[in-house]
Design a protein around this nucleic acid. Structure first.
Lengths: 143, 143
DNA sequence: TCCTAAATATGATTTTTGTCATATTTTAAT
DNA sequence: ATTAAAATATGACAAAAATCATATTTAGGA
């Protein structure tokens, strides 16, 4: 479904959403530890997201990663698309290339509607909205 | 979600459900080709399923793999559990160990009900029932 | 009984994913 | 300007998943 890398990236971005600001940058080692992901690994992922403008960063002393207000309007799907590519989530559960509405595979009818809904939420809900839900204590990040 | 191996195994078993019987065994090479999976690979998976009595086999000339009537009452989940282990499908979307109903992760509320439904169908519907749906032309196996 | 056709057992190889290491570049503070 | 602290770029390494190869065992038929 989601690669490990995507999951890590999502965790990191949500962490940044809650704990960083333009004037409060966080360096990798202070991200990797709380979210429980190896530092060198998450560093690589954050760099990739930064290059694609999903998150922001600045170098040098007092540097680090953070989310700008614009970054907060991105979706989790933006992250997934960058890390996993666009096809992974879309593919048929059984990886049947020719599976479609006309010739649905045996699991298509079951999976299609629920996957569509899943993808829609990933696309439509912003990082900011997730952040709000967490702050309100409605959902949690039990890293 | 499902490993490649599970998908291959499911394809093979559904193929056997449609094309084999006690008195009509099929050898690996005549399974691997139509379902479009490398012979040596699917052979290994079929052996594993055979050992766990999900499918049947006999060696020697006129031997091959087939589904007995009893085999037809198994579920796709039986296959998945053997190939992928029991935890893979159950795990939190974000792989957060501590994610649960009390401390749901940000995607829990979205994913939990749909995954539960998915798992239920995989568990409850028999191979025989899938086979019937395919024979009735209601679903397809576009290998 | 012997030969041959099949699955089975075992493990080697390759590819992909995940992880780690390090030299380079940028920037703030002195 | 110089230094030190940070991200960045690049690529090496490890682990897991996928794939392939082969020797062994079993069973049917001549």
């Amino acid at each position: 479904m989601l690669s490990n890398s995507s999951k890590y990236a999502i965790k990191a971005v949500l962490f940044l959403a809650l704990n960083s600001k333009d004037n409060k940058k966080i360096m990798v080692k202070d991200i990797s530890e709380p979210i429980n992901v190896p530092q060198a690994y998450i560093a690589k992922l954050l760099q990739e997201l930064s290059k694609k403008n999903i998150i922001s960063s600045s170098r040098g002393p007092k540097g680090g990663f953070y989310l700008s207000n614009a970054n907060m309007d991105n979706s989790l799907m933006d992250i997934i698309n960058i890390i996993d590519g666009e096809k992974r989530l879309q593919a048929c559960v059984l990886s049947l290339e020719k599976c479609n509405l006309e010739k649905p595979c045996p699991l298509h009818e079951l999976v299609y509607p629920i996957k569509t809904k899943f993808i829609k939420v990933l696309q439509d809900r912003t990082i900011k909205e997730f952040s709000t839900l967490i702050k309100q204590g409605k959902v949690f990040l039990p890293f």
